[in-house]
Nucleic acid binder design. Structure first.
Lengths: 199, 199, 199, 199
DNA sequence: TATGAATGAGTCTTCATTCAT
DNA sequence: GATGAATGAAGACTCATTCAT
């Protein structure tokens, strides 16, 4: 079991990084948010970079893991794609801070993000494999599966992010949250399946 | 006509902001890239913020202007949507640096971006109005036009960005560039129209 | 002509580095001693390391230059050795702070000092060449000229340093200073020439 | 008998302090080198300062003890001076790390070194007493016995240090080591006795 | 005795901004 | 209009020391 303080720090870090972005986030703030001394963070993490990278990697790992689980519990490509859309939407809506963090820093030019983009690509390839699978079974049809995968990732991510920002400040009951998630899933599904399914 | 130095500075600023992101970009770098003294930037712009905001606003203005022109030169909602997709793809592929700048900073939590997101929303509303138009004429059908607009924006932006990053380092002939742009337009069109068009 | 502030900074830096040693010296102190803002130092010098190295290099350059001048103004090896002893003693007694700085940091294991030791070796080789010269003319005789050069350097440096520390706090008239210098020169000369001269 | 861990720590401390210097040496490094936890050092030593001072004092004590033993086993001032030179050279060549530590920190301005310099002075006074003894018996002649003592200390120390640094990296057989020690003794002897002995 | 997680005061360094020329 | 030297507030990171176990 990971040391307790490490978890407290990670939790605080997601919060602060998500709200401020990597550059604007101050280690002091993270320390304060975590209720530990600044030195404690450096006892557990080599640097701000290290803390951040760990967060991103762990986040993407969780996301991909979640997606794979949803996919594996289904058999047909169509149901698997459904599973992915549900996983993507639910995961990001339920982990709003992490979602912002992942998506805000997904684009950018620094080296830090180069590495991170590898995880993104893995996720996109997962989507692409679902599309290819559907094409193989004759369920799907699309001329540019690779582009389609990226587009689905973009559509899904921006849609969720847009919801998150729009509703950011309004106090948010869990029913509303659930409702928004369902709406996101349905609109995404409509977009994706109309595009992919053979008519 | 704008002062010559101002243009040089703006040009350098796009370059540097695009490569480094707002926080990492240094005024020194911009000055050097522009071939002017640092003080000169401050003679023409109030602050780093000011320079950046101006850039973003101008960029979005150009993008929206470009989109509107493409839309207005068509009559039917279908052709207008086609025009928008062409405008979006071509504009971003031809202005790679600006594209990265706009899309990288489109998401994020700082106040600076609050204002910027207004422009984004305007652009998305433009897309939404096209969808609504198509629904009105009976060409389109979609249960969540508003979400669809966001999704199209997300799909198109991330797709372009993905292409830009993937091909970033490879030396890039204009023919290849043109080819990638065409492919982007076609895959986006397929996605959008399959989703929207009544079967 | 070097910028004025640079000289002020260098002067303050010798003072502070000499009193505190490299590690204990604070850039804040140097800035305050120089009467400039801390940023100003960094405008002119890349880092603490850079400032320090520059100081050391310049100091050794001056010392070696001074020694060479004294040597070149004499003809015979004996007189040249006399010149060197005078140069060494006077230079260090007159530049006490620099002397402490050079000699304190002359020994030590960090990379910084690796480079610095090259200058020391150059100085020692200068001494060695004088000894070899005297041996060639038949004035000197010694079985280990190379060791002798190092020993002379050590004896001269430690002797001066010892005087500087011993008399450090006593208010020091320039006559006394002159007297101590003369005494240093004479004792060093006696040591060196008794050892070297053929009986 | 001293606690075993204390010795392990002291040994590690000499190593680290010698390699890094007092300021650069980290308690973590010493703990790691000693194979104990950091807290353990603080259980046995009050502070970094304390550990260091103890080391230096013990080192000087050993050196002076060693010198005295060599001196006391001889009768004539000439032989006693020979004994001192042998003791000095052998002790430092055989305890290279300690030698660097003692000599590197012998100069410097911190309070810590003030106290340490008292030991140095004791050692120098020992040398001086030998010179005075030789003068009293009519064996030696020198106008500045006090300066001569300092000069001998300086020459001997810097010579040894120079050898240690020069040969630092080359793998070093004990025969070579012995050879270098002999050469050091002989060159020092030649320097000292030629200067001191009545012609 | 021994440990090592936690601390926070202390430092170097950066960089947007100013202003005298 | 243009310059670039100077500024100082801000922030990442270090490390000797403490203390609960």
């Amino acid at each position: 079991m990971r040391h307790q303080k490490v978890d407290v720090i990670l939790q605080a870090a997601v919060e602060v990084f998500s709200d401020q972005g990597f550059d604007q986030a101050k280690m002091d703030d993270i320390a304060q948010a975590a209720g530990v001394a600044k030195g404690t963070i450096y006892y557990h993490f080599k640097s701000k970079e290290d803390l951040f990278t760990g967060l991103m990697d762990e986040g993407m790992e969780k996301l991909i893991g979640c997606a794979k689980r949803h996919i594996d519990s289904e058999d047909s490509p169509v149901d698997q794609m459904h599973g992915l859309i549900r996983a993507h939407s639910q995961f990001f809506m339920e982990n709003g801070k992490l979602a912002k963090l992942l998506l805000n820093e997904a684009f950018g030019t620094k080296e830090r993000q180069q590495k991170f983009r590898a995880s993104i690509r893995e996720y996109i390839l997962l989507i692409e494999s679902l599309i290819e699978g559907g094409i193989a079974t004759g369920d799907f049809q699309f001329d540019y599966p690779s582009e389609m995968a990226v587009a689905i990732f973009g559509a899904g991510s921006v849609l969720v992010l847009h919801k998150l920002y729009t509703l950011e400040d309004s106090a948010w009951t869990s029913e509303q949250s659930e409702e928004v998630t369902q709406m996101t899933i349905q609109s995404l599904s409509q977009l994706v399946f109309r595009s992919l399914l053979i008519k």
